[in-house]
Structure formats: structure tokens, C-alpha cells
Design a protein around this nucleic acid. Structure first.
Length: 757
DNA sequence: ATAGGGTTAG
């Protein structure tokens, strides 16, 4: 074929060009054979812009003396699809300046730019313009408009009324003088003003398509006041949908997704069902729009129905549907099914990786989450901000500072430090690993705090017993106008509880209900009951729990049971234990607490009976263990554990410590050792507690600095609490222990939480 | 022109 013929064929079918090099060849051929012919060049421009090659597109555009409409449309589309919204709108203005009228190809891009800019008012003005031009019957434009309303109307919370009526806005548009010159560096407000100006020109009615018939019938529905009953309250989405003469799959999907994202779940489902009536079949878009609803509703039953439909129609291997399914199963606590979906996907993109990683972490499979995170990195899928905010909590739960720090470094290298979600998870991670000061540093670097980041920091202080700091921070949050949610109150009440601030706790509890209209959850009751219990006000605590609006769970009663043990009140303990077993007959912790309370009162027989009941029921307490990180290695211990390679040295160190401690006045408190055995043996049992082994190892293997020991399934006992105070004084260093409820900072013989309680 | 993943919780 002759070059000119090839050129002709290509130009007649521009979409056949799919690569940059092909486009460049075409470019060369055009210049060679056609020179700077604007018709051929704008066709080439449309090729470049469809491939999203912006610099090339702009280059050609700048060579055109008076660009034809095709050139304008192409460049406007390209700007929008690359996210250059202001540039898109400026370009629209300049096109109007040049005297050209927008057609149905231009508005989808322009409307999308408004959507990305979250500028509802501007978009409404465009809608008005679209109606005036009679372009609201165009399916692409209509779909873009519906998408815009579904994303923006819910943000302003304005359905119908003043925001949702394009003609209302349109009629009120100010009459301004035209001013389009120098519009290259417009801020978004200027763009808006100029576009509004632009419409004024159109309203005047020069356009050949300006037609009163189009204005009649269909658009009268938009007029406020003239609205007939319910139509007045319709959302912009619904109104556009009803007016569109032809609706395709995209139109339906847009409305379904809009409904789903705006919490109108039943409407979304009704539309999914009604698609058949319009001879349309749900596709991957429809399914991935509805799956998040079942995740939120924790409705695995209906979620599975969607999965079944996907499988029958071969849509289950689609990445969007797959990620939706993974998330749905994860949120329904079916991580195994989520994982099955994940491995059946033909390949994985960053979102499907993130879905399964977040799923693991949210279901408590922290190691698995970390493993998958590594696999994702090995698979050369770059972790994004979502990956990090999903995986950092795994380090927080595992209290593995080493991994947490590695991730923090990775986060900094990726430039995600500014992300509030990630920063909040880092605050939490450092605090849970014992580094409250580092947590505060991260918190201070956050530019704009939200409820979650405030709460993470408040909870950090609460965890470390710094009640004053926690309360100050809470007040500061209120001053800065960030509204506390119920989690923030859990953090605040926890802080009060750890500092014994009974009255403050009461005040905040009632303030939460009366000033903030939040209804108390089990956790709020638990925090207040815990405080009353620790303060020895056991009867008040009992009444408080009994009068709860929702029925108390086993864990709420358990906090009180634990207080009974501390205050050695057997009668109350029996009463409370009965309540626990009524709602939760296999609550292992409650059996142990009850037995320990009997021991403390030296009622060995009853204690043994409780142990026997546990044994008969097949309930086994998980072994308590402690671990300590030394030179980036974890060392774990269980009570009396001799397997550690340094056991001999540890034991020797403990013996030496005990000697010095007794010289300083330490008297072992053996009341919580449940066996009815020899006192000497009790002492040695006490001294083999896992946290002491860990602490001793930390002391002998590092020359200085804080020794941080983390425990699991332990609440540091009365004797340990006393013992560690002595140890901290003798070795002259800070010792930090985290048990099941909080951090204890020991220094110079003093614990930050005060005496044991 | 339409779709999927994230932070704080005794």
C-alpha cells in the first residue's frame, strides 16, 4: 500500500493505534504528506489523548492556529482522565472564548472534573447548561451527571431542596460581564466564576440548539416549587435517571453504586433485582458495588448469594469482584473463605493484596498478615498507603518493635509520613511497644488531627497510666473542635480507671450520654465498673452493672470479679462469678479469678473445687508467658522455664537480686499462690514467674537503658508489682512491663501506677 | 460515563 493510503486508513480508524511508537510514526507521516493540516493534526491529537499522552497532545494542540472542536474535546478529555481538573475547566473556557460550542462529547469530562474537585455548585451550573443545550438526553452525559450527584450530593447532605436543583441554581446565576482573558492561571474559584459567566452567554440563547421543547416536559420536573410531592425530595441522581430516555448498564450501575455508597442499601438491591426488567444483566461493576454493603452489614448469607451468581456467570475471577468478596468474607469473620477467593484469582493487584492483608489483621491473624505483606513486596507489588495502615496494627498487636520500626522506615522512604491513618497506627504501635515518647513525636508531626489520631494518643497515655496527659489531650481535642466518638470516650474512661479518678470518670460517663448523645457500650460500662471495683466500691459497682441498659457480658462482670480478688472479698466474688457463668459458662479467666480469690482467703478446698470444675469442663488456662526484645531478637519465657540458653545466668542473677531485695526490706506476698504448700516453695514459684525471668535476662544482657518486658495472659500480680519496684531501685534503671491491662513503669522503686490495685 | 482495599477499642 502506498504511504498516503495507509495514512488514510489509519486516520479513518484512529482507535486502531494502540502504542506511542505507532502514533509517532503516524505523526511523521502526517507532517511529511499533509504538512500542518489542522484536520489531520487534530485526528492525531485525539489518538494521543486517547492514549493519555498529555505532553504530546499539548504539543500538537499548540501548533494549531484555531483548533477545531475535535482538538478541544480531545485535550479536555485527556486533562480530566489524568486528573488535571482545573486545566480541563480552563480549557473549556478557552474553547468558549474561541467561539465554539460544547457538544455531548465535552460534558462527560467537564462534569467528571467537577466531581473530582468536589464542586457541586459548579457541576450544577454545568447541568443547567447541559439542559439548556438539550444534551441531558445524551447517555454519556447523563451517566456522568448521575455519578457526580451520587458522589457530591451526599457530601453536602442536601437532597432536593436547595442543592439538588440545577435549574434553581441556574435561574439564580448572577449576570456578569464576560471576562475570559488571562484565564491560564485561574484558581478554582476564578474558574467557577468564569464558567458561570460563560453560561450567561449561553442563556442569552445564541445557540442553534436552544430549543424550548427540550426545556419543556422533561426538565420541568427539576423545578422546585413546581415539584409534585415526592419528586421534590428526589436526589439529583434519581432525577437524572428518570429523565434519561435511554439507560444502559453503566447508568444502572452508577445508580446502584451511588445508593450503596450513600447507605441506601435496600434501594441498591431493589435496583440490582430490577435490572432484569430492563433486559440488563448484572456485571462485575454491579457486583463489586453491592458487596461492600454486605461487608458492612456483616451479612455473609446475602454476600454468598452474590458470590454464587459471580461463579455461575464467570465473574468471580475479576479483580474488583474478588477484592469485594475477600473484604466481605473478612468482615464476616470468614477469613478462610476470603483466602480461598484470594488464591483463586488469576493474578493479584495492589487492592486484592491489601484486601487479604487487612482481612488477616482484622481477624487477628497477625503473623499471616505479615507473611502476606512480605509476599506482596516479593511479588513486586509496591505497598501503598492502604497497605501500611493495614499492616502496622499487626506489629502493634504483636508488640514487635523491630518490625514496627522497619515498617516506619519503609513508610518514610515511600513518603507516606503525612498520612493521618498511617500516623495514627504508628502512634498506637509505638505506644503498645512501650515507647510513649516516640508515639507522642509521631502524634506531634500530624498536621491535621482527626478523631482517630487524637484517640490513638489518648489511649496511649491511658495505657501507660498517664491519666493527666490523657485528659488534657481530650480537652484539647474538644477545644480544637474535633468531636469525640465512643472510642475516644473508651480511651478517656480507661485513663480515669488507671489513675483511680472515680468522680471524673462518672462525670465523663454522663457527659458522653447527655452532651454528646452517645449511648454507652459494654466497654464504657466496663471501664466505670472497673474503676469502682479497683476503688473498693464493690457494691456500687455491682449495682451499676446490674442497672445497665444492655445486658452485661461476661467480660464486664469479669472486671468486677478481678476487683473482688484484689480486695479479697469472697462473698462478692461468688455472687459475681455466678453472673459471669450465667452468660458465659466457659469463661476461663473467671474460674481462675474465683480460685485465686479463694486462695487469697486461704480457702484451699474451695479453690481446689473450682480447679476441678475447670478440669471436668475441659477448660485449660493458656500458659502465661513473657517476652523481651534484646538486640533485635525476641526471647520468650514461661514460668519456671529452664530451656533458655542463659537460664543458669538468669537464675544466678535472680538469686543475687533476691538477696539485695530482702536486705532492702522486700517481703514476698505469697497470698496469690494458689497451692496449699510450703512457704519456701511458694517463694521459689513466685520467683520463677515468667516476667521476672524476662526482666532478669534483659538486665544481664544489656548494659543500660529501659528494660521492656511484655507479657501475655498475665495481669502482673501483687507480689511481682512489689518485687519489680525493688529491682528497679537496685539496678538503677527503668523497667517497663506491659501486662494484659496496661503498662507499668518502674523507676527508683516507684511505679507510675502507684500501689498495686 | 460506572466498581474493589485502610487508622483508634477493658
Amino acid at each position: 500500500m502506498a504511504p498516503s493510503k495507509i495514512l488514510k486508513t489509519l486516520l479513518q480508524n484512529p482507535s486502531s493505534i494502540s502504542s506511542k511508537s505507532q502514533a509517532k510514526q503516524l505523526h511523521a507521516q502526517i507532517i511529511k504528506h499533509k504538512g500542518l493540516n489542522p484536520y489531520y493534526l487534530s485526528t492525531l491529537l485525539s489518538v494521543y489523548s486517547n492514549l493519555n499522552f498529555l505532553p504530546e497532545s499539548i504539543n500538537i494542540f499548540n501548533t494549531l492556529q484555531s483548533p477545531p472542536i475535535l482538538a478541544w474535546k480531545s485535550i479536555i478529555r485527556c486533562y480530566t482522565s489524568l486528573g488535571f481538573c482545573i486545566e480541563c475547566l480552563n480549557c473549556f473556557n478557552q474553547m468558549r472564548v474561541s467561539g465554539l460550542y460544547p457538544d455531548h462529547n465535552v460534558f462527560p469530562s467537564v462534569v467528571k472534573s467537577c466531581t473530582l474537585l468536589k464542586n457541586l455548585k459548579l457541576a450544577e451550573s454545568f447541568h443547567a447548561c447541559i439542559i439548556r443545550l438539550g444534551l441531558d438526553i445524551d447517555i454519556y452525559t447523563g451517566n456522568a451527571l448521575m455519578n457526580m450527584y451520587s458522589k457530591l450530593e451526599s457530601v453536602s447532605g442536601d437532597f432536593g431542596g436547595k442543592g439538588g436543583h440545577s435549574l434553581h441554581v441556574f435561574d439564580k446565576m448572577p449576570q456578569r460581564k464576560l471576562n475570559f482573558r488571562g484565564s491560564d492561571n485561574l484558581s478554582s474559584t476564578n474558574v467557577k466564576d468564569n464558567v458561570v459567566d460563560e453560561f450567561d452567554k449561553m442563556v442569552v440563547g445564541f445557540h442553534p440548539k436552544f430549543n424550548l421543547d427540550v426545556m419543556g416536559g422533561s426538565s420541568s420536573e427539576y423545578c422546585p416549587g413546581k415539584g409534585r410531592g415526592p419528586s421534590f425530595r428526589k436526589s439529583g441522581v434519581q432525577k437524572v435517571f428518570e429523565i434519561m430516555p435511554v439507560r444502559d448498564l453503566v447508568s444502572w450501575n452508577t445508580v446502584i453504586s451511588g445508593n450503596a455508597q450513600n447507605g441506601m442499601f435496600e434501594d441498591a438491591l431493589a435496583m440490582l433485582r430490577d435490572m432484569g426488567k430492563a433486559n440488563l444483566k448484572p456485571d462485575t461493576f454491579s457486583l463489586s458495588s453491592v458487596l461492600p454493603m454486605f461487608a458492612e452489614l456483616v451479612d455473609v448469607h446475602r454476600g454468598r448469594e452474590i458470590h454464587g451468581y459471580a461463579i455461575r456467570n464467570g465473574l468471580d475471577t475479576d479483580l474488583h469482584v474478588g477484592s469485594g468478596l475477600i473484604d466481605m468474607y473478612s468482615k464476616c469473620n470468614q477469613i478462610e473463605n476470603a483466602y480461598r477467593v484470594f488464591i483463586l484469582l488469576p493474578f493479584h493487584d495492589s487492592i486484592s493484596w491489601n484486601s487479604i492483608i487487612a482481612g488477616c489483621v482484622q481477624n487477628g491473624h497477625f503473623d499471616e498478615g505479615l507473611k502476606l505483606f512480605r509476599k506482596m513486596v516479593m511479588a513486586k507489588v509496591k505497598p501503598g498507603s492502604v497497605s501500611f495502615s493495614s499492616i502496622v496494627p499487626a506489629c502493634a498487636h504483636l508488640t514487635t518493635l523491630r518490625l514496627g520500626k522497619q515498617l516506619h522506615g519503609y513508610i518514610m522512604r515511600c513518603g507516606f509520613e503525612e498520612n493521618v491513618l498511617i500516623a495514627s497506627s504508628l502512634v498506637d504501635m509505638y505506644a503498645k511497644c512501650g515507647y510513649i515518647k516516640l508515639a507522642r513525636c509521631i502524634f506531634n508531626q500530624i498536621k491535621l488531627h482527626d478523631t482517630v489520631s487524637w484517640t490513638a494518643m489518648i489511649m496511649s497515655y491511658a495505657l501507660h497510666g498517664h491519666a493527666h496527659d490523657a485528659i488534657c489531650l481530650f480537652k484539647q481535642m474538644e477545644v480544637e473542635g474535633v468531636k469525640p466518638n465512643s472510642v475516644a470516650f473508651i480511651a478517656l474512661l480507661t485513663a480515669c480507671s488507671h489513675a483511680g479518678l472515680v468522680d471524673e470518670s462518672w462525670n465523663y460517663f454522663s457527659s458522653m450520654i447527655h452532651d454528646y448523645g452517645l449511648s454507652p457500650q459494654l466497654e464504657h460500662y466496663a471501664a466505670v465498673a472497673d474503676l469502682l471495683g479497683r476503688a473498693g466500691r464493690l457494691n456500687e459497682a455491682y449495682d451499676f452493672i446490674s442497672k445497665m441498659s444492655s445486658s452485661p457480658s461476661g467480660s464486664v462482670w469479669s472486671t468486677l470479679l478481678s476487683a473482688c480478688r484484689v480486695h479479697k472479698n469472697v462473698d462478692m466474688a461468688e455472687k459475681v462469678a455466678a453472673e459471669v457463668f450465667r452468660v458465659d459458662p466457659s469463661n476461663i479467666g473467671a474460674y481462675v479469678l474465683l480460685s485465686n480469690t479463694y486462695c487469697a482467703a486461704k480457702r484451699w478446698k474451695e479453690a481446689a473445687n473450682v480447679r476441678k470444675t475447670m478440669k471436668n469442663k475441659g477448660l485449660l488456662k493458656e500458659a502465661a508467658c513473657s517476652w523481651i526484645e534484646v538486640k533485635n531478637r525476641l526471647h520468650g519465657f514461661v514460668a519456671g522455664d529452664k530451656s533458655h540458653p542463659c537460664y543458669e545466668r538468669i537464675n544466678k542473677a535472680l538469686d543475687e537480686l533476691l538477696e539485695k531485695m530482702e536486705r532492702e526490706g522486700y517481703v514476698p506476698d505469697t497470698s496469690e499462690v494458689f497451692h496449699d504448700i510450703d512457704e519456701e516453695l511458694k517463694k521459689s514459684l513466685l520467683f520463677n514467674h515468667s516476667e521476672r525471668l524476662a526482666i532478669a535476662f534483659g538486665i544481664i544482657s544489656t548494659p543500660e537503658g529501659a528494660t521492656i518486658c511484655i507479657t501475655k495472659n498475665i495481669r502482673v500480680c501483687t507480689d511481682c508489682h512489689t518485687a519489680i519496684k525493688f529491682i528497679s531501685k537496685i539496678v538503677k534503671r527503668e523497667i517497663i512491663v506491659r501486662d494484659n491491662s496496661r503498662f507499668h513503669h518502674f523507676k527508683d522503686g516507684i511505679c507510675s501506677c502507684g500501689d498495686y490495685w
